[in-house]
Design a protein around this nucleic acid. Structure first.
Lengths: 210, 210
DNA sequence: TAGATTGTTAATCGATTAACAATC
DNA sequence: TAGATTGTTAATCGATTAACAATC
């Protein structure tokens, strides 16, 4: 569907553009040039123009970019103008924290249910009204609901197995907080959040500053 | 201290090497060649050899790399052979979840205290034995304890202010979960974990697979 | 129209991969 | 010693920056 494949480097900058444009919008700024934006964001104006032109000419010579339009366009590119139904695999501390985080819902990401193998959690409580089901009921639930994304916060020992089950019942993407690289069939998206690896990078950077 | 500045690309691969070497070690594998490792990790063997040689010649011609030694060396490079004392700024769902995560402690990252501005949390409970203090007591606490890292999980409206206070009382690094780019003095490390941006990248990738 | 700023091409820079001599 | 595999140099590839003609 995309003309030319857009590089990963460009894509990972889009959410940051989106965030800054959102702030500008909230400040009531109507238009901005690539140069002004580049100063705010500490990147080059060239990069901004190059990046945006992968997706279309959103600007206007002599004027710059209309903040609200560009914000909306990037939101569209990122798929934020749709609702995405999610389930949480793992209702431990992190799983519950993510389910509790109401801001995702504002962007169209809605957690519909949580699953856990711990009977002490199943059915005993809800998180922001979200029920906790047994992991055994995963396939049944998926049959009856239109779920696109699974949020995996379970230990790596079981994540590969559950990942296979999710793929088998039609999940489209896995947001993976397990400490492992999931092996999924072609066409299924995995986005990793490896918290301990992030902490190690921080630790490395601190070493250098000694 | 480092001879040549090592690129960010190389550094962000180190934790992943560390993880795979840890797994090999647990499997009882004694030695591994860059070629075998490259197959496991789906990267080129050239890249592995190049990356490692930024830090020293850990291998041996005709033999490969000794798993346990290399694991230890990378751990050392990442600063995992030291204890790092941390405090949590924000004792909400995410802050508590991170405090509850015992695995960080295994790697030498120890959360010593939590801080929050919500009086309903302060002093009323502990998380894994970790006390929750008022954010007003931050400076006093920092004076009496040897804290290197702050884990920021507060909303962006207050994160910039608290960040300034942390820097003023000698924090070395901030692990930032707030949805903003912190502006800190030279020499202080910031490692961002922008969860909503990660989710947007996932969303983008899903669009492409339609 | 003149000035400003984009979209886009060309130049530079850096990172990845390939190749191979050194060496265990 | 012969075979294997590293460390490292050279070649390639891709991403970033600079420059400028197009145009609002």
């Amino acid at each position: 569907m995309e003309q030319k494949e857009v590089s990963q480097a460009v894509i990972s900058r889009l959410p940051r553009y989106y965030r800054y444009l959102g702030e500008l919008k909230d400040e009531g700024v109507e238009r901005i040039s690539s140069n002004e934006l580049s100063e705010r964001m500490s990147v080059t104006s060239s990069q901004i123009r190059q990046d945006l032109n992968h997706f279309g000419g959103f600007g206007q010579q002599g004027y710059g970019y209309h903040v609200e339009t560009l914000y909306r366009e990037i939101g569209h590119i990122l798929g934020l103008d749709k609702t995405h139904n999610m389930i949480g695999i793992g209702a431990g501390n992190l799983g519950q924290a993510l389910a509790n985080y109401a801001n995702f819902e504002k962007r169209g990401f809605r957690i519909c249910a949580l699953f856990d193998k711990n009977p002490a959690l199943v059915g005993t409580k809800t998180v922001r009204g979200i029920e906790i089901f047994s992991i055994d009921d995963l396939e049944d639930y998926m049959k009856d609901h239109d779920i696109e994304i699974a949020v995996m916060t379970i230990p790596k020992t079981s994540s590969e197995g559950v990942s296979a089950r999710l793929c088998a019942c039609g999940i489209k993407a896995i947001w993976n907080f397990s400490h492992t690289d999931l092996d999924v069939p072609e066409g299924i998206v995995v986005e990793n959040v490896h918290l301990s690896e992030s902490l190690m990078k921080l630790s490395y950077a601190m070493e250098g500053k000694k």
